[in-house]
């Protein structure tokens, strides 16, 4: 299939489908993340990239037989490997005998949060999660370094006129979006704070929040969205999120415990855990949301610049 647009569509379908698998296998938090990240943000980012680079795949001269062979071989080895796997949900599988019993039996006593996934993610494995957040932050910096256009030249009249004419056709959808955006933002906050009790947490909340802003940007134009959220503010928030996360670890060290040992944050260990998890979820949410918005803004800015240049060239060519 050479049509990249169709590939992105099918990828969106696949993402929705795989999230249904996760729901069917009781991995609610994973399904949540897949829904928000896989089906939502990554589809949007890929679409923007396609509009910049072009829709059809570059044709290759030779047939990639060797690659096919390697893929078939690796795939068959992987399938062969699955025969040794324990059955789904079997009780004495290795994964259930190592640390899982401790999480299941002790986490309520030690962390005091009903959702075990959150307590593992944010408390037992806080250092891993810190790594993930730093990775996201680094990705944002990378995109910014490679793609950011720099200070835009003053908006000349031609480009703003093009902007206005482009947005007149979206009347109905703009009104519906205006109705929906507050709800989406509120829902993102609900996901952020409800992560202790049900599926959710900082990652998902950040992505949903970013999705709302991206929706606004798509329909009202980049310049309007930049007036609401400017670049330096997002950069500040992205860094502040990582900093907040790290500071929680430092403070727990200063109080005489290990890095990310939340027990030392308050006089009561369980209260300390609550406080620590709340703070680091905030850090994660801020960083993820602002990095996603930053990446999208940079892509969209590139695209808009390219398009405006083309249009201005066309107009000038016509007038000549």
């Amino acid at each position: 299939m050479k049509d990249l647009f169709a590939v992105v569509m099918l990828l969106g379908i696949y993402s929705l489908l795989s999230a249904s698998f996760f729901v069917a296998m009781d991995a609610v938090d994973v399904a949540f993340t897949e829904a928000a990240v896989g089906a939502g943000i990554s589809t949007l980012l890929m679409l923007v990239v396609i509009t910049i680079t072009g829709r059809s795949e570059k044709t290759t001269r030779h047939k990639p037989l060797l690659a096919l062979l390697v893929v078939v071989f690796t795939g068959s080895m992987l399938i062969y490997g699955t025969f040794d796997m324990p059955y789904f949900g079997i009780a004495d599988a290795p994964i259930h005998s190592h640390v899982a019993p401790r999480y299941i039996q002790e986490s309520m006593k030690e962390v005091g949060i009903p959702n075990i996934v959150t307590s593992v993610l944010a408390s037992y494995r806080a250092f891993d999660t810190f790594g993930e957040v730093v990775v996201i932050f680094t990705a944002g910096i990378g995109v910014m370094a490679l793609l950011s256009v720099g200070r835009r030249p003053e908006e000349n009249e031609k480009t703003t006129a093009i902007d206005d004419s482009m947005h007149e056709q979206y009347l109905v959808i703009r009104i519906v979006t205006k109705m929906l955006i507050p709800f989406i933002l509120l829902y993102a906050l609900y996901v952020q704070f409800h992560g202790d009790f049900g599926p959710g947490g900082g990652f998902q909340a950040g992505v949903i929040f970013a999705a709302a802003i991206i929706l606004y940007t798509m329909l009202f134009g980049l310049t309007t969205a930049r007036k609401v959220i400017n670049q330096s503010f997002i950069q500040f928030i992205a860094a502040a999120g990582v900093l907040l996360y790290g500071c929680v670890g430092i403070v727990s060290m200063l109080n005489g415990a290990n890095f990310f040992d939340y027990n030392a944050l308050a006089s009561d260990p369980v209260a300390g855990q609550h406080l620590g998890i709340l703070l680091i979820e905030w850090g994660v949410g801020c960083t993820v949301a602002s990095v996603m918005i930053m990446i999208f803004f940079n892509f969209a800015e590139r695209r808009e610049m390219q398009q405006n240049n083309e249009k201005i060239n066309n107009i000038e060519g016509d007038s000549l």
Partner: peptide
């Protein structure tokens, strides 16, 4: 049901995104 709500929202956003970016000249 929480996930279902996220799905409804994400689905809307991605369809809007597709339509928004489908009417450029490259496509």
């Amino acid at each position: 049901l929480d996930i279902a709500i996220v799905y409804a929202l994400i689905n809307f956003i991605s369809v809007i995104g597709v339509l928004r970016y489908s009417d450029t000249n490259k496509l």
